[in-house]
Every structure is written in C-alpha cells, then in structure tokens.
Design a protein around this nucleic acid. Structure first.
Length: 512
RNA sequence: GGUCCCAUCGUCUAGUGGUUAGGACACCGGCCUCUCACGUCGGGAACGCGGGUUCGACUCCCGCUGGGAUCACCA
C-alpha cells in the first residue's frame, strides 16, 4: 500500500491549521478549493464545479479556499482575476482562504515548486528531458498517422544525470524540461465520490513534464503541491480532469504524500451536446449579471443542473448548503437550458421585496439611457409592481417600463389605426376630463378613483370596458400591451395621463 | 485511434426489483380577463438495443450502439 508516512508532511510547508472560526477549536475535516486560472472570464460551466466545491465545504462546516492558478504568465491577466473575484462575490461564493493573500497565487509559490521538483530529481522520480518541442511535436504527429498512442516515448528516461542537477532555465542556458518518472506497471485507482471507481492502467500514463524549459512548473505538478500544502481534503472539479487524476495521484505518491479524495462532476454542455464554451453565446457570469439575472437564480439553476433533492426546484442558498450531497449528483453531463434559467429568474423577480428590486433596477434604468426617473422611491416601487410579472430579467423590465420612464412615447401606427378611430374621440375627451377632475395628492391618485372615472365614461357612452381600455392603452403607452390600464394611469399620474390622452385626441381629430 | 466516463419525456430530473414511471422547464388547450402577462385546470411527451439473473426488471450483470471527456513545455 502506497501510504504516505506521516512524517512526509513535515518536509513540506505545513498546511495552515484551521482558524478557530467561532472561538471553539474544532478541527476542519473538509477543505475544498476552487482553482480558476485568470485567463478569461469566469465561465458558468466552470463556476458550477466551484459551486459544488463550495457547497460541499459549507455543508460539512469546512473551508473553501480560492486559489489562483496563474502559472501561465502569458495568458493570465489582472482583468480576468478581478472579474473572477467580482463574479464569485456577486454569486455569494465567499472564500475562507484566498486572494488577496499572496500565497494563494501559484505565481508566488515558485520556490515551493522548485523545491518539490528538486526532491523528485534527487529521488530519481523525475529526470531531465532534452527533447525539443519540435521533435516531440513531430513524433506525436507521426504516431497519430500510424494510429499509435501519441504519448511521450521515454527517450530521455534512461539518461544519467547529475545528482545536483539544476532546474531548467532557458535564460541561464539550461534548455531542457523535467519529466515525472511515472510507474510503468500496476494500476491507479481513483475512488471518486461521484463517479465511483475508475481504474487506470499505469502503462497508459506517460512521463509528463512537470517543469518547462523556461523554469515554470506545469499545472499537474503545481496543483499537487498546492493541494498538499493547503491541506485540501477533497478535490472537487469537472470530470474533464478525471484523466489527469491518476497522474496527479502518482505525483503525490512520489512525493511521499497522500492524495486527497476526489469528486469529479459531469460537465455542462451547450445545446449541441458539446462542452459549453464561448461559441455557445453568453457563458460568463458577468454576461448574466449584465443581462439582468439575479445571483440567486443563477446559483439555483447551476446547482439544480446535475444535482437534485427529490422534486424540489427552488432552493435558497442555506437550503443548498443543507441538502448538498455528492450522492445526489448525477453522473451524466447536463445540457444548459437557458429557458429554465429564465423561469427561475422570473420566480426570484416575483419573490423579491419591492425595495430591493427597486434598488437593483436603478442601474439598469441608468444604463438604458434614461437621464432621470420621473418619481421617487415609492413611485419606482409602484411602477415595478406593475411590471414584475411581465418581465423575466431586469433588462426586460426596464424595456417594458419605457412608457413610464419617458413622456416621449412613440405610438405604434398599426395600433393607432386599429384603436384610435374617430368614434373614440368623444369618450377619450370625456375620460381626460374625468381624470383631470380626480382629487390627487402630489399628482398621484388611486386605482379605485381611476376605475370610477372609467365607469362614468363607460356608462355615459354605453361602452364596454374593452372598447375604451385598448384605445386608452395605445394613447398612454403607444402599444396594445401593458399592465392593467388602471394601474398604468395610477402610476403615470394625472398630468402625463391627461397630456397623452389629449395628444391622442389631436391625432384622432387631425386624421379625421 | 488509445484511455476513461456516461445513458428515464425535447431539456433538467425523481425512481434504488413489483409504480397507471412522478415533478419542473418548454409546448398545446380550457378557465380567469381591459391587452399582455400572472394564476389556475387539463393534455401530449421518456426508461437506446440485445442477451442474461429473477416468479418479476427502468432498477442487477454482460455485450452492442450512441454520446462525452481527454491524450500540450494550457489549465
């Protein structure tokens, strides 16, 4: 049994001990991590794996660490890092350990990776490889042509090397890579929390590069050292990493360390059944935030994609934490369903306390180009109340609010042709008068008062509500679709209502 | 192609040997109604195929088929 001697831990920088979170010194038995690389936006397929890691940690009262995998200096950017951090904060996936603390950036841990590589070299569990990238590439292509497996052929594996071999560093003229000497025989078993048992034949594992010729460690190596040093107990990630797992486990063994437990989650696919990516359209967390989605909806949707708790569809974050369990995770990939996310968003739209919704909608109003909001906080809430059941996103809500937010409404010609006909002139005129005579407080009045005004006009002209409501709707909103007409008028207020009614009247009369 | 993973309505899923196979999104229809929505009621819609095991398989086993992931000096 390849068990790590417990003393092996002492040769590494010891994992930070769990902070006494509430004064008690309970031992953290679960510590998960999410390790995005700052090479682009935070992708929703990717963040879902992070969410599951987060939920598992929280469910077990453990810790969630955020690590930034930025060994790829060329592709990593500050903007991406900030977007990732902001996205996680927005989603409410707060981390216990991580940025801004520098040790959670791989780029700050190069000394540690060097030390690890040197250890492996010393133990002859790694060796220098002098093959060039071009040479390797050619061999790979050749192998593919001949239908052989494209892995490294082990050319440099048997070469002797100095016990105190220096690590590669192109600038210092040491142009070679360090390869891990992977065992040739036996098998590596991944006892996965969601996939179950996956067995890999070690003969399939080739010797992977752990240090590049420029002296930068590669992902598979850095991640092992990090997971070990930070005391990660459960590696929760997408199942695209499953093929890497036996390699990483072998590195743990070679280092004299015990691998963590693993949970590989199925990936999120696009509608075409392929791994979700940029070409499927909006896939970043930011894109959804900007499109007017709520973090609760995204979180709920992502959690429910590949995980379930009976027939329940709506989950608050505390519920997610309480119920989360790997056993309830599905094993097969799920297709991202934008419609269902929309439905969830709609659900949270309806549930939201009005004051909160009002606060959240303001930036969207501003972004839509409106200079000012016609009323105060109470007015805004009233307006939102009439629209929230008709909009699925904040962007949509603002879009519907057009006729509330600006007096410059444009009347749809088709609607006008159908409803603003000469015979409606008199009723419209009467209604304008009725509305004008309603007692108002600060220009506002009640729906009931509006209804009474309508009823008087209806009776006088012997009309049905529908015959009057549609023309009025066109006059006030410019179209045939809107919230209830009494509501619209109550929100709009006296002056704008009368003004629009008169404007429509003019239009009718000039057309006649 | 090698290796690994996966397989219930179009989609997300419940199901853990005996169910009229349940729910949700979407879709269709009724009701409500000043329009549109909301709401509500109802409807169509699934166990990939073939072998076993068993008194009995959606459920267990094997094979096939199909889908996916991965095979970098990316992560």
């Amino acid at each position: 049994m390849r068990r790590a001697a417990s003393t092996a831990w002492s040769t590494t920088s010891p994992p930070s001990r769990p902070r006494p979170s509430n004064g008690s010194n309970h031992i953290v038995t679960v510590r998960t991590r999410y390790a995005p690389s700052p090479t682009g936006a935070l992708h929703i397929g990717n963040v879902r794996s992070g969410l599951f890691a987060y939920l598992f940690a929280r469910h077990n009262g453990g810790e969630f660490v955020l690590r930034i995998d930025d060994t790829d200096q060329e592709r990593s950017t500050q903007e991406s890092l900030e977007e990732i951090l902001e996205s996680l904060r927005w989603l409410g996936m707060e981390w216990d350990k991580g940025p801004p603390e520098s040790r959670y950036f791989q780029s700050s841990r190069f000394d540690r990776y060097r030390e690890g590589a040197l250890q492996l070299l010393r133990d002859h569990k790694a060796y220098p490889c002098y093959c060039t990238a071009e040479e390797l590439d050619a061999k790979r292509k050749q192998a593919e042509r001949e239908h052989r497996k494209p892995g490294y052929d082990g050319k440099c594996r048997g070469l002797p090397f100095a016990a105190d071999l220096a690590l590669p560093d192109k600038r210092a003229g040491r142009n070679y890579t360090i390869r891990f000497r992977s065992p040739r025989t036996g098998e590596t078993v991944v006892a996965d929390h969601v996939k179950g048992r996956a067995v890999f034949d070690n003969a399939e594992l080739d010797d992977l590069i752990i240090f590049r010729s420029d002296g930068v460690p590669t992902y598979n190596f850095a991640t092992v050292l990090d997971d070990a040093d930070f005391g990660i107990t459960h590696v929760v990630r997408g199942d695209d990493h499953l093929p890497n797992t036996p390699r990483q486990m072998q590195i743990f063994y070679a280092l004299g360390l015990k691998p963590p437990e693993y949970a590989h989650l199925p990936l999120v696919m696009g509608p075409d059944g392929q791994k979700l990516s940029k070409r499927h359209g909006a896939t970043s967390v930011f894109a959804y935030r900007e499109a007017g989605y709520f973090p609760e909806a995204l979180l709920n949707y992502l959690a429910r994609l590949g995980w379930s708790h009976g027939d329940q569809e709506i989950f608050s974050k505390p519920e997610l934490i309480e119920y989360f369990d790997f056993a309830a995770c599905g094993k097969s990939a799920g297709i991202f369903n934008a419609e269902k996310l929309l439905w969830l968003n709609f659900h949270y739209m309806k549930e939201r306390p009005l004051p909160q919704l009002a606060r959240e909608v303001r930036p969207f109003i501003e972004r839509a180009g409106y200079q000012r909001i016609p009323g105060g906080e109470a007015w805004l809430e009233k307006m939102i109340a009439t629209l929230r059941e008709r909009a699925k996103t904040l962007v949509e809500l603002v879009d519907f609010a057009r006729f509330y937010l600006s007096d410059a409404i444009t009347i749809d010609p088709k609607a006008a042709a159908k409803f603003l006909k000469p015979e409606i002139a008199e009723p419209l005129k009467a209604l304008a008068q009725e509305i004008e005579s309603i007692e108002s407080i600060d220009g506002g009045f009640s729906e009931a008062a509006v209804q009474a005004a309508f009823e008087r006009v209806l009776e006088r002209f012997g009309m049905k509500l529908g015959q009057l409501a549609q023309p009025v709707r066109v006059a006030l909103t410019g179209g045939t679709v809107s919230p209830g007409i009494y509501e619209v008028i109550a929100v709009l207020g006296k002056a704008p209502t009368v003004a629009r009614l008169r404007a429509a009247l003019e239009r009718v009369e000039s057309a006649a």
